[in-house]
Design a binder for these strands. Structure first.
Lengths: 203, 203
DNA sequence: TCAGTCCCTGTCCGATCGGTCAGATTCACG
DNA sequence: CGTGAATCTGACCGATCGGACAGGGACTGA
């Protein structure tokens, strides 16, 4: 690096630590992830983690807040929208969110109940519950509630935990995944119009 | 604490501890669950946990082995079966397994990657991977792999973590859940005949 | 009554946890 | 040059972790 210090190097350590933390929070769980192992994975000392972030909780908040905010934005737009295309738009945007923030979403969806006392998680839980209620109000059958739960949890599972069970060679590219996810989730949640668009069914 | 012990309680302590452990393994994660809190929830001292079970790992094994064995049995039957009804039978039996062993299944599905070094988890992972391969071999499209992952993870999520997001009054009885789950999973995995049977579509 | 066995617990251990703090190093700016 | 702010670290703290172990109460058969 030349004498002129890019502002990037300022934020670099914090970002590297945040990324390492996020990966481990999602894969082994928040409680099971130690500051030591986060530091190790990022190539710093444990003290450095607590220099950049006030506490382990603060680190979690920094790691997943963007994803929570994005989710809230999608939800607000959905609740404000009217018309027949609402659900399809919701599904497409949620799929994009999942692909971009898969670890973060995995954290607040799967570990949402055990970490509910943390403010950022409580915020995420509230948003998820708001979405569940909105979906449930429209179609009150148990089958539809089940569809919603399966779609949400299944997608989160597929993108993180589910990778344990896929062979490396089988792992599809994100573009393929996006298309397939949109199709399958639309099948589950967008009830009228069976599976007309978006899907590339090479069947 | 327990100074007066009810009469016929030979096996009871071990079972109570196992049950308390299973609930916490599923809800907050294996690594995040301490022997102390297991003992507290069951009303015993920490030492008692290690009297009945040789180690924390052994306790996990005792807690989820029956579910893993049942899953392997279902899988073997599926792989041995021929004919058009295979998938529907598989779905129905997996749904029953999920309802009966929801915590255990949640543990080895959701935490399968982080606990892979434990023998019982490795065994469960192998079974899941075997099932994934069998399903994937029949229909190789990415959409079908996605369908499988979503169905499996989604169902596990719905029955445990997903409960955070359901209001208590909304929680359906197990019978209703079973019917709905069978229908939705069949929609996802049993491709021919769209949603003909089993489902109680009051739509 | 006494010995043996089964349950259960308190106490102790080394390791690791999240977190504090006092330097060490670096570097822009006077 | 000196100085102050920013970055990073090792040493250290009390609490808690999984686990080892000795012993105490309750029940049994002799």
């Amino acid at each position: 690096m030349p004498s002129v210090i890019p502002p990037a190097s300022r934020v670099r350590a914090a970002d590297e630590l945040k990324q390492a933390a996020l990966e481990q929070f999602a894969s082994v769980g928040f409680a099971a992830t130690s500051l030591q192992s986060i530091a190790d994975h990022a190539g710093y000392a444990k003290s450095s983690v607590l220099y950049h972030y006030a506490s382990k909780d603060a680190l979690l908040e920094a790691a997943i807040e963007p994803a929570v905010a994005a989710f809230e934005g999608i939800l607000d737009d959905f609740l404000a929208a009217r018309g027949s295309g609402r659900r399809r738009v919701l599904v497409d945007r949620v799929v994009d969110l999942l692909l971009e923030h898969r670890e973060a979403v995995h954290v607040f969806l799967i570990q949402g109940q055990s970490l509910a006392e943390l403010p950022i998680i409580a915020r995420a839980n509230a948003a998820v519950r708001r979405l569940a209620n909105a979906i449930g109000r429209e179609r009150e059958s148990v089958a539809d509630q089940v569809r919603f739960g399966i779609a949400l949890g299944g997608a989160a599972f597929l993108l993180t935990a589910g990778r344990t069970f896929a062979d490396a060679e089988t792992l599809p590219a994100d573009d393929e995944l996006r298309t397939a996810l949109r199709g399958v989730l639309a099948e589950l949640l967008v009830r009228r119009g069976r599976h007309d668009a978006t899907t590339t069914d090479h069947d």
